[in-house]
């Protein structure tokens, strides 16, 4: 025993010192990091739900617990409910994709989506973050599941009938985003409607 301590005391002392230093750094920075993460979500909320006030929009804890995904109530500056923001994730082509999905008050329409976390192939799958592509989800109905098609014409894209045009060369990423949206909406819609009735 003594032999080991004699040989390893430096490692033990260093580990203790470094551990303390890291704990200190973590204590000093953890609030700032958490604020950054929240900011990344908050800046997206007014873009997803027009009229929503990021400062008033808050996490709905009972619904979040019930559905197993973060649900935020989009509140406008007059304190009225204008929509919902779901935070959903699923596997993409390379790694997990995390989305924010904006729904209108009655959950009949998707207001928009935003990608907050993705590691898709740069220049191909990473186009899911481009608004020129994910604007397609705006105003899509939630009555039926969205489907992904290839090579839609510009005119077809303008009709919001639940069809999404795949990114050329990144069909898997396009499918992944669409199925995350479908799953989240299907799962959350009944709960959101029930909540709405309760409010009335």
């Amino acid at each position: 025993m003594l032999k080991y301590i004699k040989q390893g005391w430096l490692v033990i002392v260093l580990a203790a010192c470094f551990g303390t230093a890291l704990a200190g750094i973590h204590m000093a920075l953890k609030d700032k990091i958490a604020a950054n993460q929240l900011d990344a979500i908050n800046t997206q909320i007014p873009l997803l739900i027009p009229g929503a006030d990021a400062a008033k929009t808050q996490l709905d804890e009972p619904l979040t617990k019930q559905l197993g995904m973060e649900v935020r109530k989009g509140i406008n500056s007059e304190g009225k409910l204008v929509g919902w923001v779901l935070r959903a994730s699923g596997s993409g082509y390379a790694d997990k994709i995390e989305l924010l999905i904006g729904l209108d008050k009655t959950a009949t329409k998707i207001m928009g989506i935003a990608v907050i976390e993705q590691q898709e192939t740069p220049c191909l799958g990473s186009k899911i973050t481009d608004s020129s592509w994910n604007d397609q989800y705006d105003d899509q109905p939630t009555a039926t599941e969205l489907v992904v098609l290839k090579g839609m014409s510009p005119e077809q894209k303008l009709i919001k009938d639940g069809k999404i045009n795949a990114i050329t060369g990144a069909t898997i990423s396009s499918d992944a985003v669409t199925s995350i949206v479908n799953d989240a909406v299907t799962k959350a819609k009944p709960a959101l409607l029930a909540e709405l009735k309760k409010d009335k």
């Binding site: 470094f18 230093a21 890291l22 750094i25 920075l29 990091i33 950054n36």
Partner: peptide, 16 residues
């Protein structure tokens, strides 16, 4: 051990 400590510090600083 030394390298890992400073990498963690750099990572936290970047995140903050």
């Amino acid at each position: 051990l030394t390298i890992a400590t400073f990498v963690t510090i750099a990572d936290r600083l970047l995140k903050a």
